Simulated assay, not measured.
Amino acid sequence: MTAPIAKIRRERGSSVYNTLRHMAIAYQFKPGERLSEIELAERLGVSRTPVREALGRLVTEGFLQPATRGYMRRPLDVQETLDLYEARVAIERECMRLAIKRATDAQVEEACSYLEESRRVPAAAAVQRLVELDEGFHMRIADMAGNSELRRMLLSLNERIRFIRWIDMENVGRDSTQHEHQDILQALRARDPALSERLLSAHIALRRDQIVDAITRGLARIYLPQEQAPPPGAMPPAA
């Protein structure tokens, strides 16, 4: 049976939005690049309406900003990135505070099992996979907090800083991250609020010089020819 037109339109709009959001996250749109509804619609093989709607959502979510006759990819900005990391620290600290009070023993053990499984993933795995595992660990703490709004805010922040985390993961590597995750879980299991907060804050925060370095390396990655150094997590252009 033919699907209702309204359903087809919803599915097409969702697909367009997801594709454009991924391109924005991975900086396939270069910082400051102006985006054309017409060109994007032609590239994706859709009408301009779902493209316009998707671009509007991406402005609201902080990936794009309005420009003359359209939109542009927001620049990689040091102060904005610092602000995002400060917000992430604040949200995750509150999640940890609530998790210590609300997490069940089963949830803590599940997080321990998840960490053990993630540690078996080789450090040579694709960086987007390693960051995905890292985000999964932190989202489990958010789940333990039992606050859907904090979880939603953390998901949004993760997407906006994901490119920087890809670059930082390439530079820092995985061993120290895994050890820090283990220490955080041990403090959570012990229901130690002071230690948990201190370990989590130290683990998440990036200094200004680290952010400047990550942005510098990220911009080099973005502007090199794609065949030499594609952005981490890049997807092939949509047909």
Rank of each mutant, 00 (worst) to 15 (best):
2 T>S: 06
3 A>P: 03
3 A>K: 04
6 A>D: 07
7 K>W: 05
8 I>D: 01
9 R>Q: 02
15 S>R: 07
17 Y>E: 02
20 L>K: 00
22 H>R: 05
25 I>W: 07
28 Q>I: 03
30 K>Q: 11
31 P>I: 13
33 E>M: 08
34 R>M: 06
34 R>V: 07
34 R>F: 11
36 S>V: 00
40 L>V: 00
41 A>R: 00
42 E>N: 03
43 R>M: 01
43 R>C: 00
44 L>V: 02
46 V>I: 01
52 R>N: 00
58 L>H: 00
60 T>P: 02
62 G>H: 02
64 L>C: 01
66 P>K: 03
66 P>Y: 03
69 R>M: 07
71 Y>V: 02
79 Q>M: 10
80 E>M: 07
83 D>T: 07
89 V>I: 08
90 A>P: 04
90 A>H: 13
91 I>L: 15
94 E>V: 04
95 C>P: 01
97 R>D: 06
99 A>Q: 01
99 A>M: 04
100 I>S: 05
104 T>W: 14
105 D>T: 13
107 Q>M: 14
110 E>L: 15
113 S>D: 11
115 L>Y: 11
117 E>I: 08
117 E>W: 15
119 R>I: 03
122 P>L: 13
127 V>S: 13
130 L>K: 15
132 E>W: 15
134 D>R: 14
137 F>P: 04
139 M>S: 15
140 R>L: 12
141 I>P: 06
142 A>Y: 13
151 R>H: 15
159 E>V: 07
164 I>N: 02
167 I>L: 15
168 D>Q: 11
169 M>S: 13
171 N>W: 11
173 G>E: 12
173 G>Y: 12
175 D>A: 13
177 T>F: 11
182 Q>G: 13
182 Q>R: 13
189 R>I: 03
191 R>W: 05
196 S>C: 08
196 S>K: 08
197 E>C: 06
198 R>T: 07
199 L>K: 07
200 L>S: 07
201 S>T: 06
203 H>S: 10
205 A>Y: 13
205 A>L: 09
206 L>T: 02
207 R>M: 09
209 D>E: 14
210 Q>N: 10
213 D>V: 08
214 A>C: 14
223 Y>A: 08
224 L>T: 08
229 A>R: 12
230 P>N: 09
233 G>D: 03
238 A>S: 09
239 A>E: 09
